[in-house]
Simulated scan of single mutants.
Amino acid sequence: MYASAADLLRLLSVPAFAYGAYRDVETRRVPDLLWPPLLVLGLVCLGLEGWNALHAPGAFAFRAFALRSAVSVVIVGGLGAFFYVVPVGFGGADAKALVAISVLLPTYPAYYLDGFVLPHVPTAIRVFALTVLTNALILGMAYPLYLLVANALHGEIASVMAVGKRVPVADLPHEHGSLLEDRDGTRLSGGLDLDALRMYCRWRGVTLADLLCDPGLRDPATLPADPNDP
């Protein structure tokens, strides 16, 4: 494999992003400690790439690098910070990942593998973080369509068929998201956060089956004197 020193260093971030994706899928929680090292690595790569561009032949090399880096860090990174402060469909980890990517990959990396170059199709602007953002938005907008079609094919016709899927009650402790309807199909006002339900069960030291069988466990007067760590 042939690549610049900055691009080779950027490969160190791949296991970190893979771990963050795994934690996000499994627990919907990504440790905050994951992001500072990626930002530091991004700043180091940014410095190396800037130094190379400054000493590259031609006056336009550094200007192109500076412009692409500014678009990545200011626009894409700024959008990530905005999405973190003002939730608009982006989770907190998603927003932090976007900020990290804006610093870590402001320009397109290049990896040469026996005559084959990756990425295979760079964009005209050549701002890699912008490509990540647009791809994420396209996939995010396609997901409701997927849910709509999948639910229709399974005969699950409901007002929430574009934003949810039917889940067996027994599977609720292992699912993430919000409960939109009860088992009778009645719409729940505001939904029920399944992560909050899971934390409540851990806090009380009971199971979902216990809550279903004994409504008295939902009474605040029955809370234990020394609850568990949720």
Rank of each mutant, 00 (worst) to 15 (best):
S4T: 14
A6S: 12
D7G: 11
R10Q: 10
L12K: 11
V14C: 08
F17E: 02
A18F: 08
G20E: 04
R23F: 04
V25R: 13
E26I: 12
R28C: 03
V30G: 09
P31F: 08
D32Y: 09
D32L: 14
L34G: 00
V40H: 06
V40E: 03
G42F: 04
L43K: 02
L43N: 08
L43D: 09
V44D: 12
V44I: 14
L46C: 08
G50M: 09
W51C: 05
W51L: 15
P57R: 03
F60Y: 12
F62W: 15
F62N: 06
R63I: 15
A64N: 08
A66L: 15
L67C: 06
V71F: 13
V71Y: 08
S72Q: 07
V73E: 03
V74Y: 03
V76R: 00
V76N: 04
G77S: 09
L79A: 06
A81V: 10
F83V: 01
P87T: 03
V88S: 14
G89V: 02
A95C: 06
A95E: 08
S102M: 11
V103P: 04
L104N: 11
P106K: 05
T107L: 01
Y108E: 03
P109F: 02
A110E: 10
Y111T: 07
Y112Q: 13
L113Q: 08
L113W: 13
D114I: 13
D114Y: 14
V117C: 08
P122K: 00
R126V: 00
F128L: 08
A129F: 01
A129Q: 01
L130S: 03
L139E: 03
G140D: 05
Y143R: 14
P144L: 08
Y146T: 09
L148D: 01
A150G: 00
N151A: 00
N151V: 01
A152T: 13
A152E: 03
L153C: 05
I157L: 15
I157E: 00
V160N: 10
V163G: 02
K165P: 00
R166G: 02
D171K: 14
L172D: 05
H174T: 08
H174I: 01
H176R: 13
S178V: 11
S178P: 01
E181K: 15
D182E: 06
D182T: 10
G185H: 10
T186N: 13
T186V: 12
T186L: 10
R187G: 03
R187W: 00
S189E: 14
S189G: 11
G190L: 08
G190T: 09
D193A: 11
D193F: 00
D195L: 12
A196H: 10
W203A: 10
T207G: 15
L208V: 10
L208T: 01
D210K: 13
L211N: 06
C213Q: 13
L217S: 09
D219H: 07
P220N: 03
A221L: 10
L223W: 06
L223G: 07
P227V: 00
N228T: 03
P230I: 04
